[in-house]
Write a protein that binds this DNA or RNA. Sequence first.
DNA 1: CATTTAATCTTTACAGTGTCAAGATTGGAA
DNA 2: TTCCAATCTTGACACTGTAAAGATTAAATG
Lengths: 194, 194
Amino acid sequence: MSNKSYHHGNLRNALVEKGIELINQKGSEQLSLRKVSALCGVSQTAPYSHFQSKEDLLEAMQEYVIQQFMEVLEHAINSCPKQNDPDVLIQMGKNYVLFFINHPQYFQFLFSHTNIEMKLSLDADEVKNFPPLELLKTIVVRIYGEAGMPNEKMEDTIISLWATVHGLAAIATMKNVHYDKDWEMKIENIIRNR
Amino acid sequence: MSNKSYHHGNLRNALVEKGIELINQKGSEQLSLRKVSALCGVSQTAPYSHFQSKEDLLEAMQEYVIQQFMEVLEHAINSCPKQNDPDVLIQMGKNYVLFFINHPQYFQFLFSHTNIEMKLSLDADEVKNFPPLELLKTIVVRIYGEAGMPNEKMEDTIISLWATVHGLAAIATMKNVHYDKDWEMKIENIIRNR
DNA sequence: CATTTAATCTTTACAGTGTCAAGATTGGAA
DNA sequence: TTCCAATCTTGACACTGTAAAGATTAAATG
């Protein structure tokens, strides 16, 4: 609690937040345990009381970022007047891409060290999954499942949409990408005409 | 030339090739200058006679991989009976994804450290570009340009196709992705119905 | 052929990294 | 009040990229 005590009091959260700050500023390659420790005013090995490795801290940071990501996606969904309209998917996809355009460092960070289990098929939830993908599956089933679309076709829809927006995010966050038109409308058109 | 001489004789190429071997086996995060040097039977700092930094070696390795990549793409194109048929794009896209499925470590390696300049718009070639994207642009112009499609629509086609196949490659090369169906046909369907 | 030169490689060294082992501090339970 | 378990520090180790200085040798020069 106090500023100069031996015990930090909230180190676990501080490490996660300062780590994310560092990534936003310098990129994920510049992140080191010792830098994050220094930012928290704590010794090099202090993180090992809360995380058993650097990888472990990175996973906690990823969960934090994914939570922000999920809020953006859910906000896009909830802003749609009709919840079972295909336009929900468009808005969701648009915000998928915009999230990474607004936080360019997050894309590399999330999808390079990630060990998150991914199960593309709709059945079999025994695997701990990537929450945004889970959400996408839910929405697709909500929109097309009740309309009688067969599972296999829904799976294709999921992968197709996911691949498009994920690819757009990858391209948009590449270093030195020059694209001078207004992205937002362009993205929407591409997703819509997918 | 000789095996035990002070001078290696072909160190530059050896570093590139052993480095790529290392990436294929252990992944790009496990690559270090010292390991590559050891694999070439040479001291830690020997690479600095041929590359001015680790990043510089990585760029040379990337060029090497991109060359292999280009051969796969060009082979797909040349295998098509009609060169101005839209099916050329489908085959090219399919091989784009399959290349990274066959070399899972290459995706992270190529697109995480890369500093390659990317210019999405069709005009203005003043920027040194990403060769596969250049090729895609050429093919799209060949197929649709002569048919009178406006530039802006061609650009949308390029980004849309690129995003789809790039996203598919990203997803397919994620760790722990479980997808038990036959990818090859699925990929083709998704690209075709894009 | 002899000699110089420039390219190539080695040795040594240093700061930065993740992480282990041992010990210091301290808040809260007994 | 005492004790303990959680938390943090100090010190050390192997590994990393790379700078500086010197050794070796292929190739150019005379």
